[in-house]
Design a protein around this nucleic acid. Sequence first.
DNA 1: TCAAAAGTGTTCGTCTTACACCCATGA
DNA 2: TCATGGGTGTAAGACGAACACTTTTGA
Lengths: 224, 224
Amino acid sequence: MDVKNKRYKGQGIHVITAIFTVEQGITKVLLIKRKNEPFLGDWVLTGGALYNDEDLEDGARREIFDKTGITDIDITQFKTFGRVDRSPVMRMIAVGFFGVIDSKRVKVLRETESTTNADWFPIDKIPPLGYDHEEILTEALKELQKRIVNSNILKSLFPDGVTMPELQKVYEAILNKKFDRRNFRKKMLSLNLIEDTNKSEQFEGNRPAKIYKFKKKIEDKNIF
Amino acid sequence: MDVKNKRYKGQGIHVITAIFTVEQGITKVLLIKRKNEPFLGDWVLTGGALYNDEDLEDGARREIFDKTGITDIDITQFKTFGRVDRSPVMRMIAVGFFGVIDSKRVKVLRETESTTNADWFPIDKIPPLGYDHEEILTEALKELQKRIVNSNILKSLFPDGVTMPELQKVYEAILNKKFDRRNFRKKMLSLNLIEDTNKSEQFEGNRPAKIYKFKKKIEDKNIF
DNA sequence: TCAAAAGTGTTCGTCTTACACCCATGA
DNA sequence: TCATGGGTGTAAGACGAACACTTTTGA
């Protein structure tokens, strides 16, 4: 390969992450208001240019930290976007990730900024986004919905464990569907993603719910 | 973004495709012998550098055509690889694709070359590969196995239609598993990927098998 | 002791799995 | 008419969907 060939000179790589959360049964995504050209003032997903000395996932994590203060989040690479005109500055392709996190963990950072430059948006009330981030977001949500069933993607949402009713609400929010309490529990347990702790949590005036924890490792299932 | 910042200057993009075929019950992958540095003389997957004026999939297709003469092949993007040191020349990331094709369609090109520079290798007899192509190949095969069930990826293998027994042999080769004839047929028909033509094909001394065709469009299925 | 929400078990129907028989062809 | 392999049906088991009752807590 000839490094100086004009045909592939001046290319760059974005690492973009759609960070989701669920608050009171509403699925939301974290958006950042751009402070530079291009797309100054527009809302975009978390992300930026990949450095030469970092792997893709590390770059995505660094961008997340730089722009939101979030340090530990599980992210999943799902697709790479490369429309020729997706960036007006130069030829950029974007490696897309998504992750889910407890929204309480990012509030701190937002309050230290003088003006709001990051906020959670319900997925059905997304403003126009810069670059091709609307496309990335749409596909990220689809992938989240596909993969949520057979993985522990939601682990970051519940670092201290979760009860079945809580978990069900999150699944219902993300998949936009209602489930039967008893069957949901059975399905969850059969998927082998979570395990019983012997603790339980109290709500007001109700029977306490058992707390479960996401397992570290999960094995893939075969369809055939 | 500052275009001249050293941190992200001099990046490039590979588009790499693992092209699979099945011959006599053996899953094989197409490898190319490199004629330039780096990795001169090593076997690698089909691919190369993305041009600035083409989309990712178009670039992958162009590389396939340039190096094998194959014009129409369905390819699927599955993962992007970005280890910092994956290319010794400069910082390159590789967008990975895979596809399946009838091996008869590439023989022509191989014979026009003065020396063999492309060949099919059984997936359990792969030589050492240049770059990180061993990793890409491993993951491509995994993805092929995952997605083969619910998609018409195999369409390119059978442009003129396929019989159930043929199709079963291909599934068994790729998934490395045996299936019951009758249940395989039922499963295939229920997946709605193929449709009956009213033709049938003859073998030697046997009852002729019905010919089926892959449908154009397929709809995703929900697990929940 | 009552309301509210959590936990558990059982039945029904559907889809997958295992398996036996019949059919079309060339020799 | 026989061997070979392709096509079809059916019964048993596994899995998911629908549903009723008991338990724990705070008021």
